[in-house]
Computed example of a mutant assay.
Amino acid sequence: MTFLHTAVETAPSPLAAERPMVAFEAVTKRFGGADDKSQFTALDGIDLSVARGAITGIIGRSGAGKSTLIRLVNGLEKATSGRVVVDGVEVGALSENGLRDLRRQVGMIFQHFNLLSSRTAFENVALPLEIAGLSAKAIRDKVVPLIDLVGLGDKSDRYPAELSGGQKQRIGIARALATSPKLLLSDEATSALDPETTQSILALLKRINAELGLTVLLITHEMEVVKTIASDVAVIDRGRIVEAGRTFDVFTGAKHETTRSLLSAALGTNLPEWIRSNLKPQPSVGDRVLVRLIFFGSTAFQPLTARLVTELGADVNILAGTIEEIAGEPYGSLVVAYPADPAVTERAARFYAATGLSTEVLGYVA
């Protein structure tokens, strides 16, 4: 309990409560000189706000610009143009001393843990406090509750080589929290972990966010991570934000092709290759139409599939489906096929309109 009292600061001013914790304003980042033919634009006109107290995920393929984006937040990289503002302070305008102060307020956890092999778990967590010049007693008063918070109170004297991957990451999280940061950055923090360990680390991050009110900005290529803990998400592709919003809204109503591609496996609606390869954009006589039915909100708990079969009066095949939660909200997806006969599809359209069921026509097969 001591940790909770020391980590949470006094209530923010109304102005602080209104402004985002992080704001990217028309941010562009290029590598290479202006006359360099190999100049590369990693980020191109990024506008994005990270809400205070939220868990925000940045998702995208490898090379999309995720790591560059997060390195701008703590000043490890500097924007070529535009502004990166953290808690009202423009990062690019800070002196070296200002950057050091900023980095004490921004914790960072890494994919490969970055623990010092010659130091115990306790000593690894204590390192940023030693650098800050705290006394031995003050360090102990801070580190012990932190290690307890991440569930490793009995591992304080162990060295990294004696810890599992998940335990190493927990120590990395405790170290990131040592300076009582306002913002926690996560750079692919679960990519090196097995699925079960990943879930335990995500549960820990959710708990830290809830108990401490700590803003979390995480980058990942794992859709499952964002779906599990992020309240908000932004999709980055080739250095540009192509879609952003509430995680549930983006996952259930993806508009950009990149988002849909990234989410197809995460939402459990991948079709077998033999079906995908035979999909046609227009029907022929005797074809069947493939439709994705999306259940959420008022439709999540209604027996609409059974009613659809009755309404159509035709054979309906279920090809793929899933029932799960996205950012804590129920979501179901079902891919069905039925005759592409105009009379049948007209009855289906009336049914969807009457029930409010969201649908997407995927194509037609013989």
Results as ranks from 00 to 15, higher is better:
residue 93 A to V: 09
residue 94 L to M: 05
residue 99 L to H: 09
residue 101 D to T: 05
residue 102 L to V: 06
residue 102 L to M: 02
residue 103 R to F: 02
residue 103 R to N: 04
residue 104 R to C: 01
residue 108 M to S: 01
residue 108 M to P: 00
residue 109 I to N: 07
residue 109 I to M: 00
residue 112 H to R: 14
residue 114 N to V: 11
residue 116 L to M: 09
residue 117 S to G: 12
residue 117 S to M: 06
residue 119 R to H: 09
residue 123 E to K: 02
residue 123 E to W: 04
residue 124 N to K: 00
residue 126 A to G: 02
residue 127 L to N: 02
residue 127 L to T: 05
residue 129 L to C: 04
residue 130 E to Q: 08
residue 130 E to L: 09
residue 131 I to A: 09
residue 131 I to G: 07
residue 132 A to W: 11
residue 135 S to Q: 11
residue 136 A to R: 15
residue 137 K to Y: 11
residue 137 K to G: 15
residue 138 A to P: 12
residue 140 R to L: 12
residue 141 D to G: 01
residue 143 V to C: 02
residue 143 V to E: 03
residue 144 V to T: 14
residue 144 V to L: 13
residue 145 P to H: 08
residue 146 L to D: 02
residue 147 I to P: 06
residue 147 I to K: 03
residue 148 D to G: 07
residue 148 D to H: 10
residue 149 L to P: 08
residue 149 L to D: 14
residue 149 L to Q: 13
residue 153 G to K: 02
residue 155 K to F: 15
residue 156 S to N: 14
residue 156 S to V: 15
residue 158 R to I: 13
residue 161 A to C: 11
residue 161 A to R: 14
residue 163 L to D: 03
residue 165 G to V: 02
residue 166 G to W: 09
residue 168 K to M: 13
residue 169 Q to G: 10
residue 170 R to N: 03
residue 171 I to Q: 14
residue 172 G to Q: 08
residue 172 G to V: 05
residue 173 I to S: 07
residue 175 R to I: 00
residue 182 K to T: 10
residue 183 L to W: 08
residue 183 L to Q: 06
residue 183 L to R: 01
residue 186 S to D: 15
residue 186 S to W: 11
residue 190 T to S: 06
residue 190 T to C: 08
residue 191 S to F: 10
residue 192 A to N: 05
residue 192 A to F: 07
residue 193 L to H: 10
residue 194 D to W: 03
residue 195 P to S: 05
residue 196 E to G: 11
residue 197 T to D: 09
residue 197 T to S: 12
residue 200 S to Y: 06
residue 200 S to N: 12
residue 202 L to S: 05
residue 203 A to Y: 12
residue 203 A to W: 06
residue 203 A to R: 08
residue 203 A to H: 12
residue 204 L to Q: 06
residue 205 L to R: 05
residue 209 N to Y: 03
residue 210 A to S: 10
residue 210 A to C: 11
residue 211 E to A: 02
residue 212 L to D: 01
residue 212 L to W: 11
residue 212 L to V: 00
residue 212 L to P: 01
residue 213 G to N: 05
residue 214 L to M: 11
residue 214 L to P: 11
residue 214 L to A: 11
residue 215 T to R: 03
residue 219 I to E: 03
residue 220 T to A: 05
residue 223 M to H: 09
residue 223 M to P: 02
residue 223 M to V: 07
